[in-house]
Amino acid sequence: MIHILIADDDPHIRELVTYHLQFEGYTIFQATDGEEASILLAEHPIHLAIVDVMMPNKDGFQLCKEIRDDYDIPVILLTAKDQLVDKEKGFAVGTDDYVTKPFEPKELLFRMKALLRRYHMVNAEKIKLHDTIIDRSSYEVDCNGQLLMLPMKEFELLSQLASYPDRTFTREELIQLIWGADFTGDDRTVDVHIKRLRDRFAERTNDFSIKTVRGVGYKLEVAKK
């Protein structure tokens, strides 16, 4: 499950963003100021932070710098100001993106997904699912000490699902992410590749399972051990 921190002293903004992100399946942690956000960052695994610039106790610039110094997660700064000097300061302290209020929740969501995808591709070279390790750099899967070389599309599909455990992907999303916008086949291609992955790992491990979400798509669940 992807954990998102929302740090904003405006309760309406927090509730608006929380509503839309929870609908997408994200787990949300809310902070009313920078100090509370720092505590949440220390206590919980956070994958992305949405930070308001103007907050009491510790402002967004200070919090962003702290995140950049101590954590390896993407940051989106929110501000009511649309001034070049604020954006310059935001990028100087390490923000990855900048959204000006008022904003469309869907735009924020698109920017979040792009950052999460970029961070996973750049930073998470190895995805560990108990005794199963997916190595993005070598395109190998180590399953209980046995090295597997999967066909490329199967590997990319497994990596995509494993990067976001418990998140449901529609077939259309998986087509876009794995096969690309120019793909001319139909979404049954996803079903075929999912079946192949299930068959490959069914007898090898119970570290994870790929679940069908009826009428929607697929998600990967990590076994609780």
Rank of each mutant, 00 (worst) to 15 (best):
N144D: 14
Y139V: 07
V141R: 02
F103Y: 03
E36M: 12
E173W: 10
E173G: 01
A114K: 15
E154R: 12
T79L: 10
D142S: 10
R117A: 10
L78K: 09
L84Q: 13
M112F: 06
R68D: 11
D72H: 12
Q62V: 06
K81C: 09
M152F: 13
D59A: 09
M152P: 08
Y164S: 07
I134Q: 00
M54G: 12
D166L: 12
P151C: 05
R167Q: 15
A162M: 01
L129A: 02
I67K: 01
L174E: 05
D52G: 10
P74I: 09
Q160R: 13
Q83K: 13
R171C: 14
V99P: 00
L157A: 08
I39C: 08
L129M: 13
L40G: 05
I134K: 00
I133S: 01
K113F: 04
K153N: 12
S137F: 05
L177N: 10
T100Q: 05
E104H: 13
M149W: 09
R111Q: 06
K113I: 04
F155Q: 00
K126G: 02
L115Q: 06
T100F: 04
S137P: 01
Y119S: 01
P165Y: 00
N57A: 14
P105H: 07
I50M: 08
N123M: 09
D166M: 13
E172G: 11
T170C: 04
D166Q: 12
N123A: 07
M54R: 12
L157P: 12
K153W: 06
Q176M: 12
G145K: 06
T168V: 15
T170Y: 09
L116K: 02
K128S: 10
L78H: 05
Q176K: 13
R171Q: 13
A80F: 07
I50Y: 05
L48C: 10
P151L: 07
E154P: 04
D52W: 04
K81N: 11
R68E: 09
A92C: 04
K58Y: 02
D96H: 09
L108E: 03
V53H: 02
N123G: 14
I175M: 12
G60I: 02
P105N: 08
M149Y: 11
G60K: 00
K101P: 00
K106D: 14
D96G: 02
Q62K: 12
R171K: 15
Y139P: 01
D72R: 11
H47V: 06
A49D: 08
D86F: 08
K153G: 08
I73E: 03
M54H: 15
Y164F: 15
K87V: 11
S163T: 03
S138Q: 11
K89P: 06
E88C: 10
L148N: 07
A92V: 08
I39M: 11
L48V: 11
I175P: 03
P151E: 11
A114I: 14
L177E: 14
I127Q: 04
S138A: 11
I73R: 02
T95V: 15
V85G: 09
S163A: 12
T79D: 07
H120P: 03
A37G: 03
L108K: 04
